[in-house]
């Protein structure tokens, strides 16, 4: 069990912002940390890692990482950290990057095998693709068999196919090593697939805490199929009205009646929703 109760004053875009987080995390759980940029996610991760100081307490099982008297340095915390930008040593080979953390050749080989990197073990990071680099970072983070694995948007720079592959590998390592994992992510599919708990931060505070579906499913009454968009146009056709709405990179059309057309304004943000029974799904060609 990891118990976190920390306070820190941050300088946000709107002046001083207090970061206050009081949560407990079960061992071996996979927690996704979400929220807008500037909400304090990365700072929280860095405080857990010991890369930043804060007031309060962090207790991991019976070990105090932080309190009034104690500040355990990062290398004594038994953590692994994976950054968005890989942070590999450029002058070392893949294998040397792993062995730098711990001289355990058996574990290093095992990790490289699990992530299909054995054939690249002599290569320097510069010669690797983004996905390969991030797998090396992930392996390196596992080298000291961390109690706590911290990942800051580890997959955000990768293409969807590589993301998918690494999500699978992250989950595999998380399970095999019995690690407690905290990952900053904005991607709902990633959060749904990997995490068993989502914590959403806003303005330095926890505003939502639960499983992926209860936190991320946008609903409007009993409507489970719901999107936010911008109303671009309303056109009268025969006795009905058709609204044109931009959602993400797409345009959609919705049939309205006169009373709806009257109260909606072109340019306004709208929520488009329907029941889960109505949409039809077909495979993309």
């Amino acid at each position: 069990m990891i118990t976190i109760d920390i306070d820190k004053k941050l300088l946000g875009s709107m002046g001083e912002m207090p970061l206050h987080v009081g949560i407990s995390i079960e061992n071996k759980s996979f927690v996704a940390l979400s929220g807008q940029s500037g909400s304090g996610k990365t700072t929280l991760l860095r405080i857990l890692a010991g890369l930043e100081r804060a007031k309060g307490k962090i207790v991991v099982d019976d070990e105090i990482w932080l309190d009034e008297k104690t500040f355990l340095p990062p290398q004594k915390r038994g953590i692994g950290f994976v950054f968005q930008d890989y942070a590999l040593f450029p002058n070392m080979s893949v294998l040397e990057n792993l062995l730098f953390v711990k001289k355990d050749l058996t574990l290093a080989k095992h990790l490289l095998e699990m992530t299909e990197l054995e054939s690249l073990q002599e290569r320097k990071p510069m010669t690797l693709s983004g996905g390969q680099k991030q797998r090396v970072s992930l392996c390196r983070a596992m080298m000291n068999r961390p109690k706590l694995l911290l990942m800051d948007e580890p997959l955000s720079a990768l293409d969807p196919l590589m993301r998918n592959k690494l999500q699978h590998e992250i989950l595999m390592l998380h399970k095999e090593f019995g690690t407690t994992t905290v990952m900053v992510s904005h991607d709902p599919s990633e959060i749904y697939r990997l995490s068993n708990r989502v914590i959403v931060l806003a303005q330095g505070k926890v505003v939502s805490d639960g499983d992926a579906k209860s936190v991320l499913l946008k609903t409007q009454g009993s409507q489970k199929f719901s999107f936010e968009g911008e109303l671009l146009d309303i056109i009268k056709v025969d006795v009905i009205f058709i609204a044109i709405i931009a959602i993400g990179q797409q345009l959609v059309e919705v049939v309205l009646d006169a009373s709806e057309a009257e109260v909606l304004h072109v340019g306004q943000s709208v929520r488009v929703s329907t029941k889960a029974f109505s949409p039809v799904i077909s495979a993309k060609k």
Binding site: T219, G221, S222, K224, K275, A276, F277
Partner: peptide, 17 residues
């Protein structure tokens, strides 16, 4: 009668909707 998936938040017998 309505069929739906998870109940809307706060809905119970006697709710005004």
């Amino acid at each position: 009668k309505m069929m739906g998936l998870d109940l809307p938040k706060g809905l119970h017998v006697g709710s005004h909707v």
